[in-house]
């Protein structure tokens, strides 16, 4: 699964948590915070994505990314590592 595929999963889960983004065209440069996700929403989106990938990695490993593109890359890198 590529970083772009993971990005699609992140977008899917973001829409689930924030239904008002149903028609938002997600870009790699989008920031979850700027899209309206609070800290708990962001944790929820991350956990849903990790669950979909069956990737058991502590959430703290993903605190650095500034946008969803970087987050997708970080998750992709962890998948490769694991």
């Amino acid at each position: 699964m590529s970083s772009d595929d993971i990005l699609k999963l992140i977008a899917q889960h973001t829409r689930e948590i924030l239904p008002e983004l149903e028609d938002h065209p997600f870009q790699r440069s989008d920031s979850l915070g700027e899209l309206g996700a609070n800290s708990l929403d962001r944790s929820e989106i991350l956990m849903m994505t990790l669950e979909a990938l069956d990737l058991k990695v502590p959430a703290v490993k993903f605190h650095g990314p500034k946008n969803i593109g970087e987050l997708a890359d970080a998750i992709h890198a962890q998948r490769v590592t694991v």
Partner: peptide, 12 residues
């Protein structure tokens, strides 16, 4: 059997 994926909102 998959507590690693427990949703964070549970804490609230």
């Amino acid at each position: 059997d998959r507590t690693a994926f427990l949703r964070p909102t549970y804490a609230m």
